[in-house]
Design a protein around this nucleic acid. Structure first.
Length: 137
DNA sequence: GCCAACGTTGGC
DNA sequence: GCCAACGTTGGC
């Protein structure tokens, strides 16, 4: 059971919009990076991912669940990239900010800090537990 | 196949 | 608005 983190600019696709889609979920499209694509292809149904707001907010606001495994991204004209469907699962009681992640030495190795431009990234079980704890879930 | 130029992401 | 990081493109 792997854990993940996906990023979105709230002005493009926000947590509230994700919640509005309910349990059926919505396609997570627009990934145009091969490292991110490989991560999408590793995701299994039922696995969880943190939902991170980049640019505005800069905080982890919720958890989504994978409801459909990778398939071709219809928004990609080249046909090379894939997407998955994710559904909102839980909102963090307290959003975990980028600043808070930076301050916690246990999270210093997170891809969020080390590879700040990667939009779909793995999270270790240890990191997952720490952030859930910080977020009150 | 190398590398400079350029574009994009995302934090500050 | 700036800039660092880094991915992509295109000339050679």
């Amino acid at each position: 059971m792997a854990y993940w983190l996906v990023k979105s600019e709230p002005s493009v696709w926000s947590w509230d919009q994700q919640v509005a889609k309910g349990a059926k979920g919505e396609a997570w499209t627009g990934v145009r990076n091969h490292t991110a694509k490989l991560n999408l292809m590793k995701m299994k149904t039922g696995e969880q991912a943190f939902f991170y707001h980049s640019n505005e907010g800069k905080e982890i606001v919720g958890i989504v669940k994978v409801v459909r495994e990778h398939y071709p991204d219809a928004s990609d004209e080249t046909g090379k990239f894939v997407c998955v469907d994710v559904a909102a699962f839980k909102r963090l009681k307290t959003p975990v900010t980028l600043l808070a992640v930076k301050k916690d030495k246990r999270l210093a190795e997170m891809a969020l800090l080390k590879q700040s431009r990667l939009s779909v990234q793995p999270v270790t079980a240890a990191e997952w537990t720490i952030i859930c704890d910080m977020g009150g879930v």
